[in-house]
Structure formats: structure tokens, C-alpha cells
Amino acid sequence: MWDPMPDNDFRPAGASSFAPGTLGENPDRSRDPVRARVTETYLGDGTPVLMAEPLGVPATRDVVLSASLRGFTGMYTELCLRLAQRHRWRIAAPEQFPGLQHLDEQARTRQVAQFADDAKLDALEAAASLLTSGPVALIGFCLGGMYALKASGRPRFDRIVSFYGMVRLPEHWRAPGQAEPLTCLTRTERVLAIAGERDPLIPAEDLAQLRASGVRTLTFPQAGHAFAHDPSLSSYRTADATTAWQAAVAQLSIETKED
């Protein structure tokens, strides 16, 4: 049973504002955003999962979101809600740090070295199963974008978008349970990687190797890290975010039944 949270006008304390169009929707379209709700449930191991769904209309796409290092901030909860409203997506977003949500950003960074790829990718697939038994899309941000690249080897996900996911493991994350993202890439035609060319976590040589592997990449010359999914950050760039989300929406688009 999902625990309901307020719908439509829900706006968590400290949440950021996503201006019309900045999530890849056409702000001038005649079809208005729909009502949506955010709820919370849990995987079998107790991992919290945010669920977002449109109300009163069929969902156009089932999407798993893989969170950044920050996890379930008010902004991230609102992101799930707005994507459900503006695109009519049904969304499942598992917590990256179950049981460790109290950790600050520095402690979370240290904790990543303790992660195991199989467990993280299994959690993404378990979240997908909360949505449907059929094809599911996957979008990841930063740490979650790295796992989105690694998930290309999992056939459960038919389309994948990695927002500034690390192409190579940072030195302090290298551990027995972590494979290099580049070595995990398969069926690269399903994958879109979005990055800023001033991102210190994804140097130009890594982007070149990503392209050489067959992954389609979209880069932004003036953007750094985390420029597209959190308007409260100083790194956020409105125009680049809009273009990036338009590409992400196109990547996930499949034939859907119109209302």
C-alpha cells in the first residue's frame, strides 16, 4: 500500500521551481499539465521508493529515476511530480542511500565505495517492477547517471538517459564491487549521455571514449556538473537544461496511445 502525499499543489519545503518548458515540454502546447500525485512505497529490502503518477489520464511512459548523491531532497520530490504532470509519466525513484539518509554529502561520497553494482542495478530493476512487467525507461543524474550507464547491460530498460553520469570511476570510488562504467556498456544504441564540457568529473577524453563506444552524446560547452535538474544550484543553466530535457524526452519517446 503506498503512503499518499498531497497531490497537484504539493510543494515540499525548500523545493525548487521548474519554469515552464525547462523539463522538455512545450510550454505553449494546448494540452495542459495534468494533476499528479507523489506517494512512497518500499522495495522488499526496505529501500524507500518515490512514486509519481498522473491522475485521470493514462500514463504515456513508465520511467525509473536514479537519484544523484543528494538523494530525496525537496527538489527531487518535486522533479518527480512535475515530470508526471508535464509528460504524464509514471515514475519510480529508489533511494540511493537506504538507511543512511541522515548522512551529509561528504559522508555519502565516502559511502559510495561500499556500494556493489549488482545490488544497485537490482534495486533499479525492482523499482521498474513496481511500475509494469513491460519495458521501462531509465534516467539517472550524477551518481545515478553513472548507474544508468552501467544499466545498459540490463535488457529491462529499453531507453536510457544519463545526465552527467561519470564515465570512469573517481579514484575514491574504486572498490571490488564497482566496475568501470565504460566496461559495462552494451546495446549502446539505447543510451543518450548528456554532459557539460566544463564538468571536472567527466573530462574530454572520457567523453571521447563514450562516443567511440557508440553512445550518443549531447554536450554543452559552457555547462559544468549538475546543470539541468536542480534550479536551486548555482551550476543550473536554464537554456541548457531546457535543451537537455528536450533531448531526454525525445530519447524516451515511443509510440503511445493518445487520449
Rank of each mutant, 00 (worst) to 15 (best):
L69Y: 07
L100M: 12
A128Q: 01
A123T: 14
R70P: 00
G74I: 09
F72T: 09
T132N: 12
E105Y: 03
M75G: 14
L130M: 13
G99P: 07
R86Q: 03
K120P: 00
R88H: 11
A92Q: 04
V136Q: 01
H87R: 03
L130V: 08
L138T: 01
L121S: 05
T132K: 02
L83T: 04
S68Q: 13
R70W: 10
R88D: 05
P98E: 13
D104T: 06
A116D: 15
D117V: 10
F141G: 02
R86C: 00
G145A: 10
T73L: 09
T109M: 07
R90E: 09
E125G: 01
C80G: 10
A92K: 01
M146A: 15
A137Q: 03
L143E: 13
D104M: 07
V112Q: 06
T73D: 05
S129Y: 08
E78C: 06
Q106D: 14
G74K: 00
T109L: 13
V112K: 06
P98Y: 14
A123Q: 15
Y76I: 08
S129D: 15
D118E: 15
Q114T: 15
I139P: 01
A107C: 00
F97T: 06
P94A: 05
G140Q: 04
Q101Y: 04
R86G: 01
G145H: 01
Q106P: 00
P94N: 08
A92R: 01
A119E: 15
T77R: 13
A127L: 05
A123M: 15
R88M: 14
G145Y: 00
V136R: 00
L121F: 09
A93C: 15
Q101I: 08
